[in-house]
Amino acid sequence: MFDKLGMYLQFPFVRYALIVGVLIAICSSLLGVTLVLKRFSFIGDGLSHVAFGAMAIAAVLNLTNEMLLVLPITVISAVLLLRTGQNARIKSDAAIAMISVGALAFGYLIMNLFSTSSNLSGDVCSTLFGSTSILTLNQKEVWLCVGLSIAVVVIFILFYNKIFAVTFDENFSKATGTNANGYNLLIAIIIAVIIVLAMNLVGSLLISALVIFPALSAMRLFRNFKSVTICSAVLSVICAFSGIIISILAGTPVGSTIVAVDVIAFAVCYVAGIISGGVRK
């Protein structure tokens, strides 16, 4: 088995996939905790569908660099979604569902009407489930991903205390002179960037899993914000890394294998949480 793994690791595209996979896992899990606690678990799903729609447009327009169109559209949607959430909380889930389904439908429609490739269902499938794109990354894309990931991690560390304050109690932060709206905007932009990045890895359908599973697993085990955040990042990296290795060895699709590992990790954490909670009581 290790021989086989060693052989695969000699291919640059396998190494790229591992690097990008681990980086995206860190980024998505960092903000996952905030999103889950803010009751925005589904925003990953909604935004990834928006990104899918934007990608369809980019494909039809024959843009050489899809990112130029996909990133701004996703960022704008993220800002709009998080904004509706503040004014009327009941509406936020409906807004996410609406944008998510709408963008998905329009994306598929556009791809169907103006398709330039002969293998349409294959294209759609790989955009949604990311079946092969992570294995076709080139060096430039890897560097882009490295750069953006470092930016996300640095921003998260610098604004960690502010993100905590705004997540725990937005009104208190606003009332006592913290620019809560500004930080919400920042969170929205970071999320959009992460989602566009993660589309390469697991495809748009499975991004939610990457965002929420590590956070939920960590919340079973730990009881303060810092530990939960660190634990979810570590868990996410372990799951992504082992998911990619398993998928290479077993020949399974990368995205769904990673999510499967995440689900198993959640189950383990859930049981562990019950056991340790039982002991403590």
């Binding site: 606690l37 006592t176 913290t178 303060n224 914000f225």
Partner: peptide
């Protein structure tokens, strides 16, 4: 999931 200290400290954010 937040400890008491984390929450009290967040009052200093302003």
């Amino acid at each position: 999931p937040a400890s008491v200290r984390e929450i009290v400290l967040s009052g200093c954010q302003g």
